[in-house]
Simulated assay, not measured.
Amino acid sequence: MIEFAVETRDDGIGVVTPQGRLNMVSARRLKEILAELVGGGTHRIVVDLGETTFLDSSGLGALIGGLKSARQAGGDLRIARVSPAVMTVFELTNLDRVLRARDSVDGAFDD
């Protein structure tokens, strides 16, 4: 079972850290978490994938849905600390062009 660490930092950025396998079962919960953050006024979100060991198309769909919601609210969603195995999934689907991986959570919104 995957766990999610969720934090809203002092600078207003929401940080979500999926810990484990982000698959069809857990993607539903990620969608809910991202929707709750955006609905609660947190429009800049970083998904820290440093502790995510696996990602499938459902997980990608949840991330893209969160990206769309955040952007519609005037914010953005960024990914950080992506492992090589998970990065391969982004590259194979060309979603690495839509969700550019950042090296760190702290620097995800520095550009």
Rank of each mutant, 00 (worst) to 15 (best):
M1K: 03
I2V: 13
V6H: 03
E7N: 11
E7K: 15
E7Q: 14
E7T: 14
D10R: 03
G12C: 07
I13M: 03
G14Q: 01
G14T: 03
V15N: 04
V16S: 08
P18K: 11
Q19C: 12
Q19S: 02
L22S: 02
N23H: 10
S26D: 09
A27D: 01
A27E: 01
R28E: 09
K31A: 14
E32V: 13
E32W: 11
I33F: 12
I33W: 09
G39P: 09
G40L: 05
T42D: 06
H43A: 05
R44M: 01
R44Y: 13
I45L: 12
V47E: 05
D48Y: 04
D48H: 12
L49Y: 12
E51T: 12
T52P: 00
T53Q: 06
L55N: 07
L55I: 07
S57A: 15
L60Y: 04
I64R: 00
I64K: 00
G65C: 08
G66F: 04
G66S: 05
L67Y: 11
K68P: 02
S69I: 02
A70N: 01
A70W: 02
A73M: 11
G75R: 09
L77Q: 08
L77K: 01
A80R: 00
V82C: 08
E91H: 10
L92K: 07
L92N: 13
T93V: 04
N94D: 12
N94T: 14
N94Y: 02
R97V: 13
R97W: 02
V98R: 08
L99F: 00
L99Q: 04
A101W: 08
A101V: 06
R102Q: 15
R102L: 05
S104N: 09
S104P: 05
V105I: 03
G107I: 10
